[in-house]
Structure formats: structure tokens, C-alpha cells
Design a protein around this nucleic acid. Sequence first.
DNA 1: CTTGACGGCTAACGGTGTTAGCCCTACGTT
DNA 2: AACGTAGGGCTAACACCGTTAGCCGTCAAG
Lengths: 174, 174
Amino acid sequence: MPEGSTTDRLTPRKREIVTEARALLEEHGAGALTMRALADRLGIKAPSLYKHFPDKAALELELIVLGLEETAEALEAAADSLPSLMKAYQAYALAHPHLYRLNTERALPREKLPEGLEARAAAPLLRVCGGDVDTARAAWAFAHGMVILQLNGRFPDDADLSAAWETGADAFEG
Amino acid sequence: MPEGSTTDRLTPRKREIVTEARALLEEHGAGALTMRALADRLGIKAPSLYKHFPDKAALELELIVLGLEETAEALEAAADSLPSLMKAYQAYALAHPHLYRLNTERALPREKLPEGLEARAAAPLLRVCGGDVDTARAAWAFAHGMVILQLNGRFPDDADLSAAWETGADAFEG
DNA sequence: CTTGACGGCTAACGGTGTTAGCCCTACGTT
DNA sequence: AACGTAGGGCTAACACCGTTAGCCGTCAAG
């Protein structure tokens, strides 16, 4: 069996813990993802979590891996065009705002990631850009910027963001 | 005397505190900006800070105001073209990475901001986009995305980001 | 002369991640 | 049958965080 998927990266108990951590994060935000709150949800005490993960960062790393895998899946499932890819990216991010934030706010701990995962997540966009990494990076920056500025309430409340998305998508297609 | 500038928004003592807070933030990052560490730097004890600011968020708000004012100044000083504006934006952000992060990671507390400040910071970009808010927002998202993805180590270490910047600037000029 | 604002202080509280050390259970080996 | 070991819980405690309560000195204005 090939390695890589979260399913076989972790023991069953670890996976249960990550599942509850994710639920806590997605339901109540990063501030609610506490070792004690997580332990509570699992019916155990906080220090017991350290039998499974060396620290909180290791636990969050698994959430980051999950987010990257799901992003990759979402992009792979989208049609092979830049606007379609951007829609898929936006949709996934807005559907999982707290997970998306956790994923993008910190530095990527590349050496601890499953091999090839980052490249896999980047592949669909790169392909649709005809292999032009500069265009792919610029388009990614645009999409991430739109998502994160919206999540952080940086646009005026009455801003028509779909128009801005369209403008950006058009700009990178020419 | 007109209100608005940080200079007359705050009493002298408050300004001293904000100055040290900024130094702490810029020198050692957000994690080092602690009420106790800040008090230490000022030669006082942490609880004394609450004689000047109701809570840490109020202190951070002043740093956000500073960042917005300086961003506005940097953009106003730049030449009246989109690439020039983007260069100025990038330069300011990269010169003050921790301040920039503090400014953009949280939601903007608009009601507590000096009136007109947000609009002032946005004006140069909007003007260079010929008043087209959609293009301005898309270009801003691109620039912010480039900066924050770089700050968060999201691009490969050997990525040629200046090429990506150029690609983006070109895309929004057509 | 007194009052009040200003700006310090200590002690303490609850919450955070984390460590040390103890214990029970289940399983595989001798 | 006895033993050792790994897995997975527990309590107590530590250091640090933001924050509050309450006390005290200084100094200018009435």
C-alpha cells in the first residue's frame, strides 16, 4: 500500500483526535482549538494528548495536511480552465474558513509534509497556466488575496466581490 | 487643530508606549509583543499599562493605525502608475513584515479608526485604476497575496518572485 | 488645603501549552 | 504461568499569558 494519504499516516487513535480537532476548529474557530477543549471532546484529559502528538504544532500539522489534500482534490475535480479553478479554490476556502486560515497563516513546514503533496496541490493551476510558473504564482496570489481579504473583513461590507473575482480571472487569462 | 494624525490622537505617554510596542513587534515578532515584555521595556510593570489602554487590542489598534498611515504615505509618494504603486506597496510591507501581518491578519475595526484613513490608504490605487473599484480590489488582492504568501514562506525558496510580480502587474494594466 | 487626575505598584485569577511521574491493561515471549 | 513492554490514561505542577482589584505617591487647580 502506498503511503501519503492521511488514512495510513496515522494510527486509528491519532486519526480520531485529528478528526475532533478539525471539528472543534471548523465549528468554533482557532481560538477554541485548545488542548483542554480538545481533550474534553474526546473524554480524556489534556496531558493524555501528548501520548499521541509531541505538541500542538504536530496536531495542527495534520490539519494542514488535511487541508492541502482536500484543496488538491477540489482543484483536480474542477474543469480545466482558470476561472473554473478559481471558483473551486474560492469555494473550498469559504466552505472551510478556519481550516483555510490555519493552512495559510503559518509558514509551511515542508520537511514534515507527505512527499509530493505540495506539488500535487499546485499541479492543476500550473497545468491550466500552460506550465508558466510566473502566471500560476500570480494567479494564486490573486486568489489567496481575494479569499483572505474577504475572510478578514477587509473589503467594504457592500463590495461586489464577484465582480472583482471576474476582473482578476479575466486579467490572468489574456 | 485638526484631529486624525497619531501625533494628536494620543497623550505623550501613550505615544511612548505605542512606540516601544512597535519596536518590540518589529524587532522580535508578534509573539514577543507581550504586556509584560512591553512593560519591561518601559521600566514599569504590566498592570500599569492598563492605566493607558483598556486592553491589548486597543494598543494593537494604534499599531494598525500607524501601519495604515504609513502605507498611505508610501503609496501617495509613489509615481502614478500601477507598477510603481505595487512596488511601493511591496517595499513597505517587506520592510515591516510583522507590522504588516498585524495589520492584515485581523478584521479591520473600522468604527475605531480615524475617519477617512481607510479611504485615504485606498485612494492612490483607486485613482491609478481610473476609479474602477473592481480592478482596484483585484489588484490589491494580488499584491496582498504576493506579499503575505512570501512572508509566510509559501513560495518555493528558489522562486523568482519578481517575475511573478511583473506578470501580475502586466495582467492588471491591459 | 484639599481634591482629583495621573500613573505607578503588588497580589491574584483564570486560561494557555507543556512536563514529570504514576498506573492500569493487553499482548507477545520466554 | 510469568514476565516485560507498549499503549494510553491519570494528577499535580510549572511558566507564561491577559487582566482585575485595590493601594499609594505626586502634583496642579479650586
